[in-house]
Amino acid sequence: MAEATATVTAATTTDAAPAPAPARRRRRRGILVPLWLGYVFLYLPIVIVVVMSFNDSRNLFVWNGFSLRWYPELFRDGAMMQGLANTLVVASGATLIATVLGTLLAYGIHHYTRGGLIRAFAIAPAILPDLLLGIGLLTFFSLLSVTLGLHSVILAHAVFATAFVTAIVLARMANLDPSLEEASRDLGMGPARTFLRITLPQLAPGIVAGALLAFTLSLDEFVIAFFTTAPTQPTLPIVIYSMVRFGVTPEVNALATLLLLVSIVAVISAQRLTRLTGPER
């Protein structure tokens, strides 16, 4: 009986033993294959655009050597430069409005509401389809007899950008120490001075991160701008769309590379600043 028990115990131990290290390593490598295939699917077209922006040939399918010739050509293109100027005006205006409104909205939701319904409504424009939001804003402007132009695009972009700023600032506010505001009021400061001197400095990383994200999203937004701008004042994505319908040119590749660089810098900056919205240490 003792020998039988020992045999069963040994068999159970053998069955429960972990797989050898090489087998586990092969299994992990097998799991990584779909991951890397997904990265290739997502980023290979972007890499091709960047590489072809340095192609000396106008033919996008023939590599004729490394060259920077298309970047000066880009800045000599009047239509693109006007579209870029319009886009910068729209992105700056929308970011300013969204940052102010989003910060105040987050402060009000955090301090004066309970439950998640109002919070969900405040963040809803960030998840609504762009097509639905664009048509709704166009209808709204038409009902108010608002003439379309850069001002209408700024207001339209501010709508969805405010939702992103609100979400980021709310995440920051959730980790603030409420005793600091209470101490400020106990020492005689009113709500406005407490907000400006105590709360706002603590919210600064989240506010800046939200502003950078809003600027980046507005910079390359197409659908909402297409519905809410005038034909005589197109933003840069609309100018690019009107050009690529007849084929992608090297100038468009150069412009896409520059926009990609700006977006990467802004997103990384926002991500690093958003880390500061974590729990206080």
Rank of each mutant, 00 (worst) to 15 (best):
Y112H: 13
I31T: 15
D15P: 09
R27D: 13
L104R: 04
A174D: 15
I154N: 03
V49G: 02
A6Y: 15
G38L: 09
V265R: 05
L200N: 00
L148H: 08
G78N: 06
V47Q: 04
G30C: 14
V100F: 09
G206I: 11
G136C: 11
V248L: 05
M189W: 12
T5L: 15
Y39W: 11
F141S: 00
G30E: 06
A256Y: 07
L212C: 15
R114G: 10
A2M: 11
G102H: 08
V248M: 05
T139Q: 05
R185K: 10
E221M: 04
V165W: 03
V267P: 04
L236S: 07
V90S: 02
L273N: 09
I268N: 05
G136Q: 06
Y43N: 07
V208T: 13
T5A: 07
S92R: 05
V262N: 02
T95N: 09
L212W: 02
G247H: 04
L133R: 00
V50P: 06
H111T: 05
L255S: 02
S184C: 08
L138R: 13
L155D: 14
S152V: 11
V262P: 01
L217S: 08
H111Q: 12
V267R: 06
A79M: 09
A94I: 07
I118T: 08
A158V: 01
H110C: 00
A256E: 02
H110V: 07
G206E: 15
L236A: 05
L104Y: 03
L104A: 09
W36V: 10
L144T: 14
R24V: 03
V252I: 10
F75L: 00
P234C: 03
S145E: 12
L180D: 01
V33Y: 01
T95W: 04
L144C: 12
P201E: 00
F215G: 11
L255M: 03
T199E: 09
P279T: 15
V208L: 11
I198K: 03
L196K: 02
F222R: 13
V262H: 00
P72M: 02
I123L: 10
L84A: 04
A6G: 04
S53T: 09
P18L: 08
F222D: 14
F121W: 13
L101W: 12
D56N: 12
A106M: 05
L213E: 00
S218Q: 11
F160Q: 03
Y112W: 11
L258R: 01
I109R: 01
L68W: 13
L203F: 04
R27C: 13
T235A: 00
N64V: 06
T14M: 14
